[in-house]
Simulated scan of single mutants.
Amino acid sequence: MRTIDVIATGLRFPEGPAFASDGTLWCVEQEGASLFWLKPDGTSGRLHLGIGSRPNGLYIDDRDRLWFCDSGFQAIRCINYPDQEPETIVDHIGDDPLDWPNDLTFDSEGNLLFTCPGSPDEDQPGFVGVCTAVGEVRKISETLFYPNGIAFLPNARTLLVAETHRKRIWAGRWDGTGLNWISPTVWAETGPTGFGPDGLTLGPDNLLYAAIYGGSCLQVYKPTGTLAGTIKLPGENPTNCAFDPTRQLGLVVTETQKGQLLCIRD
């Protein structure tokens, strides 16, 4: 039987859960200008990012570096923890500044891919960008309305992007050498529930988990884009989710209505 427990409260718009190699769970606090951490022994704390920061998506690489989108500074930033000094990695594409960077991931070639949806109050197309390991930055899509969560399917070659304002998820073949998102098409329609898909996470079961912001649920999809199930949540606004590699916490969800971290165990 599935159980849902609250493992942290009092968070100010949590997003982007991710696990470090020592089992520490991290997430951002968009409205708290901080990264929140929770260790396996139950201790917790915050790493403050400074006035003006508005962190969003978070990715922890195999060197335990914390990569995060910061819409306050219009930048992708990185912390080589425990040095704790954020470094700006990307803040422009050509002469254009980033536009509310939201979520990010890496491909198998070491390219950083990220979404820039623009302001959530505007219904204008945003863009998806890429930054190579040598610092080349370009846009790979400029047609989606509020591009948000970003993830790969199990083959590591099919790139998925959530289009929140149109309530759908797009899929296309990713060429990590030529830096092209090839023939993206609508992979799934998330339906009338909520505002639309937010964060996307590939599970160890090779299913895709989409947080439906405003919908009080996660939707679970097969690699074909077929809906496999729905996980109801106690809070209205899940933003993203991540699986604990140690399996102790199961599936962790960030939820902003109540400012909580949830864990779902079977």
Rank of each mutant, 00 (worst) to 15 (best):
M1F: 08
R2M: 15
R2H: 15
D5G: 12
D5P: 03
I7P: 01
A8F: 12
A8G: 07
A8N: 08
G10R: 08
L11A: 03
P14F: 10
E15G: 09
A18G: 15
D22M: 09
L25H: 02
W26A: 04
E29D: 08
E29G: 04
E29V: 09
E29Y: 12
G32L: 02
A33H: 13
S34E: 03
F36Q: 02
D41P: 01
G42W: 02
T43E: 14
H48I: 11
G50R: 05
G52I: 01
G57R: 02
Y59D: 10
D61Y: 02
D61F: 04
R65C: 11
R65L: 07
C69N: 12
A75M: 02
R77I: 01
I79H: 01
Q84M: 12
H92R: 14
N102D: 08
L104A: 03
T105F: 00
F106C: 03
D107A: 13
G110S: 12
L112S: 04
L113A: 05
S119L: 14
S119T: 14
P120Q: 08
Q124C: 11
C131Y: 00
V134R: 07
R138G: 15
K139H: 05
K139T: 09
I140Y: 01
E142N: 10
T143E: 15
P147Q: 13
F152N: 13
L153W: 00
P154A: 15
P154C: 14
R157V: 09
R157N: 10
L160A: 05
E163G: 05
E163F: 06
H165K: 10
K167G: 07
R168V: 09
I169Y: 05
A171C: 09
A171V: 04
G172K: 04
R173T: 15
W174V: 00
T177Q: 06
G178Y: 01
L179M: 13
T185E: 10
T193F: 08
F195M: 14
G199S: 12
P204F: 12
A210G: 13
G215F: 01
G215E: 02
L218T: 04
V220H: 05
Y221F: 15
T230M: 11
L233W: 00
P238R: 11
T239R: 06
A242E: 07
A242T: 05
F243T: 06
F243A: 09
D244I: 10
P245Y: 07
Q248F: 10
L249P: 01
V253M: 10
Q257Y: 07
R265L: 05
R265C: 10
